[in-house]
Design a protein around this nucleic acid. Structure first.
Lengths: 152, 152
DNA sequence: GAATAATAGAAAGCTCATTTCGCGATCTTC
DNA sequence: GAAGATCGCGAAATGAGCTTTCTATTATTC
């Protein structure tokens, strides 16, 4: 599917999304034209979803990271859909998964401080219809926080 | 701390990390020279940590996302440090937090399939010294998976 | 309200992106 | 194993964008 050049391109772009095409070409050992065509093909195929700037949450007053697990009281399609759409729309929510295990959902939230968190959970979670068990965990330390997928 | 121009720059670069400086300048309403200086200052200050390409995990045979919670049997500094350094070094581990609650750590892992996960947890987690309770949750659906911080 | 410090924009030179073209390697079909 | 097709490469040219320097303008401080 992907050859060694593609893998090098993907790894390099994960490490530096703003590298110039020429530098990328030199790094992987192809001409700049060939490199450019491969990058465009990877974007076209959706392998590269997006380019983004990763920011420092603490420097932007978003120092508190919380992980919530939530169970719903009812599991009919409508209740679930409403819950999913509403939670997805919250900007404080960075990750939101439906998961296996005791809880139904895991929500990853970034806010300024514990006061903001209190406000978030009271106004934006507990007010939702059909919310059952909710557990909050706070990140004490970020030992690793990456987006870089290992490319095999 | 940050004025309206800085916030616009950060939001725009989060949405498109490879936008040209000229397009960015036009979008936020400053000259390209002024915009360029602000972007460099934000990079210098570490507000912008990194530019990266976000890839599609499924298209790269990394279709299984698991969340583990782990407790350690001993909590002396050396045991913890060894555990933290080792787990951080695993490429399958994208996020790794020390958290509040029953468990000590939360680990976010991306692998190809359930066989790879079995291999990962048996060879790379259970083999570590002092690992106690481990719980695995699997992501059934990714309802939201972003890196975009809300800028206030 | 004058002095000082920041910050803006214009212009210019330099770098880079993107396209077009032709070549060579590899695969397919007979 | 030869003819044709296909694919992907690199060279070169053009247009677009980056980065710096210089000057003007706008805030800030006393």
């Amino acid at each position: 599917m992907f050859d060694s050049y593609d893998r090098k391109i993907l790894n390099t772009l994960q490490a530096d999304g703003r590298i110039t095409n020429q530098q990328l070409a030199e790094k992987i050992g192809l001409s700049s034209a060939a490199t450019w065509r491969r990058v465009k093909a990877l974007e076209e195929a959706g392998v590269i979803r997006q380019y983004t700037a990763l920011l420092d949450a603490a420097k932007l007053s978003r120092g508190l990271r919380a992980i919530l697990t939530v169970s719903l009281l009812r599991h009919d399609a409508d209740s679930k859909k409403l819950f999913e759409d509403t939670v997805s729309s919250y900007p404080e929510v960075l990750q939101f998964f439906s998961i296996t295990g005791d809880a139904d959902f895991m929500i990853h939230v970034v806010v300024a401080d514990i006061q903001s968190y209190d406000q978030f959970i009271n106004e934006k979670i507990f007010t939702l219809e059909g919310v059952g068990q909710v557990q909050s965990h706070f990140a004490l330390r970020e030992l690793k926080n990456e987006t870089t997928l290992p490319i095999g």
